Simulated assay, not measured.
Amino acid sequence: MSRIGKRPIPIPDKVTITIEGQSVSVKGPKGQLSRVLVPEVTAEQESDTLHVKRINESRVARQRHGLSRTLVANMVEGVSQGFQKRLEIQGVGYRAQVQGKNLILNVGYSHPVTIEPPDGIQIAVENNTNVVVSGIDKEIVGNIAASIRAVRPPEPYKGKGIRYSGEFVRRKVGKAGKK
């Protein structure tokens, strides 16, 4: 049995779950998410917990069991608390600002880079160099944060670029001058 898949998902107060066949809808104070589970697993609700069970012991069912449980648990956590990713911008003259909902990045190119977040994603900028991406869907929050980082990933010589908060960038020495 999958160690992750067999763990029950606790359902917090103010969160309601609706199961219709393979479709699972989660509604909470921050919003609503829904997902269609793969046919190899089923979801069952018992009072204040939710269990994701596989229908047989096939290889595919075993592979998808833990994944499906984690996806449903992320939906429950997202509508109750939400997710956020923090990014740091390092480099002389590198800065970010929010214009309406869009993020404007000035990171050493000849033009500013504009990133438009999808619905349900909020982008905030703290003191021009810290960007916070938040929302209720963990997958979308992570993808938007990765696309912001991909605009100017950190380089190994001076460490300039956009990195996740707490990310360690391994530095290189570079060339030594002529003696």
Rank of each mutant, 00 (worst) to 15 (best):
S2C: 15
R3C: 10
G5W: 14
K6G: 08
R7L: 15
P8W: 13
D13Q: 12
K14I: 14
K14E: 15
V15F: 12
T16N: 13
T16R: 10
I19R: 03
I19F: 04
I19H: 04
E20K: 10
E20R: 12
S23D: 09
S25A: 11
S25M: 13
S25N: 01
P29N: 05
K30G: 08
G31Q: 07
L33D: 06
L33A: 06
L33V: 06
L37K: 00
V38H: 05
P39T: 12
E40V: 08
E40G: 01
E44G: 01
S47F: 05
D48P: 00
T49D: 09
L50A: 07
H51G: 01
K53W: 05
K53E: 12
I55Y: 05
I55V: 14
N56E: 14
N56H: 12
E57A: 08
E57Q: 12
S58C: 06
R59G: 08
A61Y: 07
A61E: 10
R62N: 14
R62G: 11
Q63A: 15
H65V: 07
G66K: 06
S68M: 15
S68Q: 11
V72F: 11
A73I: 08
N74C: 07
M75G: 03
V76K: 06
V76L: 09
E77C: 04
G82S: 14
F83D: 08
K85R: 15
R86F: 05
R86E: 15
I89F: 04
Q90C: 03
V92L: 06
G93Y: 11
Y94G: 00
Y94H: 08
R95A: 07
Q97F: 06
V98L: 07
K101Y: 09
N102G: 02
L103Y: 03
I104E: 03
G108W: 10
Y109W: 04
P112V: 09
E116D: 07
P118R: 03
D119G: 02
G120K: 01
G120W: 08
I123K: 00
I123C: 04
V125H: 01
V125Y: 02
V132M: 06
V133Q: 04
V133C: 00
S134L: 02
I136E: 04
D137A: 02
K138G: 00
K138D: 13
E139S: 01
E139R: 00
I140D: 02
G142R: 07
N143W: 04
I144C: 05
A145W: 07
A146S: 08
S147Y: 02
I148S: 01
R149I: 10
A150Q: 11
V151H: 00
V151N: 00
R152Q: 13
P153W: 13
P153S: 13
P154S: 14
E155A: 03
Y157S: 08
Y157T: 12
K158S: 10
K158D: 10
K160Q: 11
K160G: 01
I162E: 07
Y164V: 09
S165F: 14
F168S: 06
V169D: 10
K172E: 15
K172P: 02
V173C: 01
K175D: 15
K178A: 14
K179Y: 14
